[in-house]
């Protein structure tokens, strides 16, 4: 069986919104500890991994299941969530459906057909990074939107003193500098000066659900995928994006 109750459907909507920009379908691996899923996007440029510990739920009861879901349908349903709605996710093993229930003054139940997906064997590789930057999520997100004015890729740079988001168009360019002591930076640990280029569309998709108050952990190295980590609604999200080589 699987049944989980979350306090805010609206908050969880942000998670589904973000994940569904990168993936078409997902296989949730459910067990008594919580829910996990990870997958690469179809082009293998990006990886999404999420972990929902049982503590993120008000009520949680589960044994082991793999629940394959079409994310477009899941997103559409979650878009119907209202601000006071509780979210109940429950597996109907007989009908082979995932019930998504919004509970408020009444109950609205959407039943999604399960997809026959097997859990991805793809896991976030255990890469050691020389540099770790913790930055306020909205500051990083805004810098990416600024960069998007002039280019379709962005250069992320880090040295001992600052983290830089740079974009270079044919004619125009953009630079956002976050000095170590600026209010946007929570911490800046740099062992190796780094400069790497990444696709902006992917990066902006990865931070889609971020709002003010959220903090993003950025792992950066030379010629390495960038790794982003943050939490939304108690859900731990990890993203990996392969670099662009000049």
């Amino acid at each position: 069986m699987f049944r989980g109750v979350m306090e805010s459907a609206k908050e969880f909507k942000k998670v589904v919104d973000t994940v569904s920009t990168l993936l078409d379908e997902i296989c949730f691996e459910v067990d008594e500890e919580g829910i996990k899923a990870s997958a690469m996007d179809p082009s293998h440029v990006a990886l999404v991994s999420l972990e929902i510990p049982r503590l993120a739920f008000e009520e949680y009861e589960a044994d082991s299941h793999e629940i394959g879901i079409d994310l477009e349908a899941f997103k559409k349903v979650m878009n119907r969530a209202k601000s006071k709605d509780k979210l109940i996710l429950e597996l109907d093993e007989e009908k082979n459906k995932l019930n998504i229930i919004f509970e408020n003054t009444g109950k609205r139940k959407f039943s999604l057909a399960l997809l026959d997906l097997s859990a991805s064997s793809v896991k976030v590789p255990d890469i050691e990074y020389p540099n770790v930057i913790m930055i306020k999520g909205d500051a990083f997100k805004e810098a990416l939107k600024d960069a998007d004015l002039f280019s379709d890729y962005v250069i992320l740079k880090a040295d001992e003193d600052k983290f830089v988001v740079h974009a270079k168009g044919d004619l125009n360019d953009f630079n956002a500098e976050f000095e170590k002591d600026s209010s946007a930076i929570i911490s800046l640990e740099v062992k190796e000066e780094t400069k790497s280029a990444f696709n902006l569309d992917y990066l902006m998709d990865m931070v889609k659900g971020v709002s003010s108050g959220d903090i993003i952990k950025i792992y950066l190295g030379n010629d390495m995928p960038v790794k982003l980590e943050y939490s939304l609604a108690g859900v731990n999200l990890t993203f990996l994006l392969a670099p662009r080589i000049e």
Binding site: M40, P125, N199
Partner: peptide, 12 residues
């Protein structure tokens, strides 16, 4: 212009 790598290279 640059070349977009895939993650496959990093999963070996």
């Amino acid at each position: 212009k640059g070349k977009q790598l895939t993650l496959d290279a990093f999963f070996k």
